[in-house]
């Protein structure tokens, strides 16, 4: 399977078919038993995980925010830990807060935000280092349709404006059909369909 730079790929399939494992292979959380995984021209098995992940933005279904840091601080944290100069961190964080629609709520703690807003903070944290590859593992799994749309909209903006590659694992058939992008369907760890656009039935996407 090959994914071009700047492409958006949905990974679909029922639970346990290997979507998360495929994504983990990309950010070196797991290493392949067979075959090679090449990201940005580098063989994942021969590149330090930290170097590889610096060009990635990783988003999960669970938000994993720091409860005692504000939305602003949670987003900034992603750049601060890489020792980015403070002025640059502030500037980027302001931009991201605007992008994720939380400019007015930057001072709030995660507990003071809704689930959708918390996920947008997590998305913001993943985007702060301007990733070339966005890895999203069912990021809308716990969100209502409205918040799902907002998260998709944010990622689509970054995808279009920064030409970021997006690998998006999902069960959400509406999102898949609406965006009409490349869809890779997995079944028992194997790719069984790889097509761009077209109509996808709920059971094909693995919607529960």
């Amino acid at each position: 399977m090959q994914v071009a730079s700047g492409e958006w790929v949905f990974l679909v399939g029922a639970s346990g078919t290997g979507k998360t494992t495929l994504l983990k292979l990309l950010y070196r959380e797991e290493l392949a038993d067979n075959g090679r995984v090449i990201v940005g021209g580098n063989d994942v098995s021969s590149v330090p995980g930290s170097r590889l992940r610096r060009s990635m933005g990783i988003i999960f279904q669970t938000f994993r925010l720091l409860e005692k840091k504000s939305a602003f601080e949670n987003i900034a944290y992603g750049a601060e830990v890489l020792a980015t100069p403070p002025a640059e961190v502030r500037r980027r964080t302001q931009e991201i807060l605007e992008l994720v629609g939380l400019k007015e709520k930057g001072h709030r703690l995660p507990g003071e935000l809704s689930g959708g807003e918390q996920q947008r903070v997590a998305v913001g944290r993943a985007l702060i280092n301007r990733p070339k590859l966005i890895i999203a593992d069912e990021p809308t799994g716990d969100l209502d349709p409205e918040n799902t749309d907002r998260v998709i909209e944010i990622l689509d903006t970054v995808h279009r404006e920064q030409q970021a590659t997006v690998m998006f694992a999902t069960h959400n058939v509406e999102v898949v059909n609406r965006l009409a992008r490349r869809v890779v369907r997995l079944e028992e760890g194997r790719i069984v369909r790889d097509a761009t656009g077209g109509y996808w039935a709920a059971q094909e996407v693995g919607e529960p």
Binding site: P48, S50, L52, R53, L65, L66, V81, L82, A126
Partner: peptide, 16 residues
């Protein structure tokens, strides 16, 4: 644990 995970995801080295 969460802090460690976040740092790993954004590419901080284990020594960092």
């Amino acid at each position: 644990e969460v802090e460690i995970q976040i740092q790993r995801w954004v590419g901080v080295t284990p020594w960092g």
